[in-house]
Amino acid sequence: MTTMQERPRTADSDGGRTIKRNRRRITAGSAIVYASAFVLALVWLIPLLWALSTSLKTETDASLGQEIRWIPPEWSLEGYRTLFERGDHLVWMVNSTVVSTIVTILTLVLCVLAAYGFSRFDFPGRKFIFAAIIAGLMVPPQALIIPLFDIVTTLNLGDTYWGLALPQVVAPVMVFILKRFFDGVPRDYEEAAKLDGAGHLRVLWSVIVPLSGPIVAAVGIFTFIGSWNNFLWPLLIATDPSMMTLPVGLGVVAGGYGLFYAQNMAAAVLGALPLLIVFMLFQKQIVKGVAGVGLK
C-alpha cells in the first residue's frame, strides 16, 4: 500500500484516452484494491442475480424451503408466461412510458423556455419571479401531497395521464441548472443568428439548444428516470389498476401475487429492464450528470 506513487493517476474519468506515463506495475497494494473492489461489486450484484435466477425457475423450484441454487435445476419461463397471461404488467409499462414521456417533453419545453427567458431578457418582475422559483428548490413535494391531491381531484384529473404527469412537470431545479448553463453560452453566436434575421424562438432552438446539448440531454434523462420511478404521487392518483404506473402496479398489485416467487421475480426483472436499458444507453450522460451535482 506504500507504492501509491507508481500508480498513474489520470484525470481522465472516461478511460477512453490512454495516457502513457509510468508503466503500471502490479503491486500488492493494487492487487488488494482490485480484489476487494471486485468482491464488493459481486456482493452488490447478488440481489439482481438472485432475482434473475429465481425468475428462471419453475414455481416449485422457486418456492420457499427449497435448497438455494443459483443455477435453476430446471430452466423455465413459467413465471414470465403467467405474468404475460395476466397482462397487467404490460399495461403498467405502457402507462409509465406515456406518463414519463409527457413529463419529460413538457419539462424540457417549459424549463428551456423559462431558463432562456431568465438568462437573456429583462422584463418587469424578472427578479421577483426568479427568486420565487429558486425558493421552490426548498419545497419538498412530498409535503404537498395532501393539498395537491385536493387540487388535482378538483380538476377532475384523478386516474388520468394528465393528473399523473402535470404536477411532476414543475421542477425549479431544472430551470436553475439550464439558466446557469445558458448564462455561460457566448452571445456571439446568437447575435450572428439574429443578424441573419432569426427570431428569439429560432435562436433558442437552433443556436442555444444545440450548444447546450449535453446539459439538455442530462435534464431530459434525469427527468425521465425520476418520473418513471416516482412512487408516492402515482400511488395517490392512480387508484384504478389500469391507470397505475409500473412502480405502483408492482408494489400494490404484484405484491399480492403471494408466494409465487418465480412470477414475482419475473415481474421484478421485467420492471428493472426498461431503466437498465436506459442506463446502458446513457451511462456516460448519467454518470456525468450525477457528478455535475457535486462539481458545479
Binding site: 452488490w44 420511478n229 437498465l276 436506459v278
Partner: peptide
C-alpha cells in the same frame, strides 16, 4: 464497478423492495 454500484439506484423502488 461503476455499473455494479450505481445500477441499483436507477431501479424503481418496488422492484427493489420485491427483491
Amino acid at each position: 464497478l461503476r455499473m455494479a454500484f450505481f445500477a441499483p439506484f436507477i431501479l424503481p423502488v418496488s422492484v427493489v423492495t420485491m427483491i
